[in-house]
Amino acid sequence: MRVLTSNQKKNSRRSKEDRVFDLINVILVAIITVMVIYPLYFIVIASISDPNMIYAGKVWLWPKEITFEGYERIFRDNKIWIGYKNSIIYTFVGTIVNVSFTLMAAYALSRKDLYGRNIIMVFFLFTMFFSGGLIPTYLVVKNLGLLNTMWALILPKAVAVWNVIVARTYFQTTIPDELLEAAKIDGCTNAKFFWKIVLPLSKPIVAVMVLFYAVGHWNSYFDALIYLNNENLYPLQLILRNILIQNESAAQMVRDVSSYAAQQRVAELIKYGVIIVASVPLLIVYPFVQKYFVKGVMIGGVKG
């Protein structure tokens, strides 16, 4: 007599409609996955393929006539390395400032004994819907003497209100009031409680804030476009923008190429290659913070 396993029994009880529904879901998820992944994959294979093959429509699944000339020219260009250095500095310093201010503000607003915390939260929320605008913000940055400095890209956006709300919700649902009361009995101050107890218990939300802010700084170019005039201070994304839109940097990389057709060919390789070079750091970091990212978003964004 044949004995069915629990999985086989479960599958045998499933109706035909359930199996059709599951099949449709699998097909839809597969289609969406291809739509998301294929453009990224195409950029990778296009960066090492002959542009003539791309124009002819022959590159769609595998690279054709592989060449690394674009990457060679990218890594020989000093502006790329300067942009890399600037982006790393802006991302590192900016993330520290952002996360520090956000967590301190979120923890203070999560405390029930903070007088007027609801009024303070209203002022925070007001900035999500109304802002001073680009010109007033530029004048403030200029009057503070921040133009052509790193701080023009960091201080005006030191705190994101949405991240404060997420972190505050996390603190409210994760840090019990009894823990604070017990710490006070042992003579713990508010500052020591925050640094010694709250932060070690908040690694998931800290990782989420680091990821949010770091990605924002790494991908940002508009603030640099507005506040920076010195090319030696340009972040990598602004250099990438100039290559993709204005062809400024790309034109400088292909000056040694004689014919116009060859210049256009190499310029296309450089465009695709720079996109890959600019994306690699985030792709390397993300797997290490993914588990904290998922946990922190679920706890900070769903509960409460």
Rank of each mutant, 00 (worst) to 15 (best):
F130V: 14
A183V: 00
L180D: 05
G116M: 00
P176I: 01
R117A: 02
V161Q: 04
R117Q: 01
I88G: 07
V166G: 04
A152E: 03
K184P: 02
V93A: 05
A183H: 09
T102V: 13
P136Y: 07
A160S: 15
V166P: 02
K192N: 13
F171G: 05
S100K: 02
W195H: 09
T127E: 04
A152C: 14
Y170G: 06
F194C: 02
R111N: 13
E178M: 01
F129N: 06
F124R: 01
S100F: 15
V164H: 04
G132N: 12
S110V: 04
E181R: 08
P156W: 08
P176H: 06
I175M: 06
V141E: 06
K85H: 06
Y170S: 10
F130K: 12
N163A: 08
V140M: 11
T95R: 08
I175F: 12
A108I: 11
V99C: 13
L114D: 02
T149C: 06
L109I: 07
P156F: 10
L153C: 11
V122F: 15
M128L: 14
R117C: 03
A191L: 08
P136T: 08
N143C: 14
T174G: 08
R117H: 05
A182Q: 01
F193V: 03
K184H: 00
F130Q: 10
T102S: 14
V97L: 10
F126L: 11
V97P: 05
I88N: 00
A105P: 00
N86S: 06
R117T: 02
Y138S: 11
K112N: 15
T137M: 12
L147Q: 11
G94Q: 07
A152K: 00
I119G: 05
S131A: 13
T174E: 04
K157H: 12
K142S: 14
E181A: 09
S110W: 13
M150Y: 15
F126V: 14
I175A: 05
N118L: 07
T149K: 08
F193P: 13
F124I: 02
F101C: 15
T102W: 05
N148I: 04
I197M: 00
S87R: 02
D177P: 08
V97M: 10
A105D: 03
N148V: 03
S100C: 09
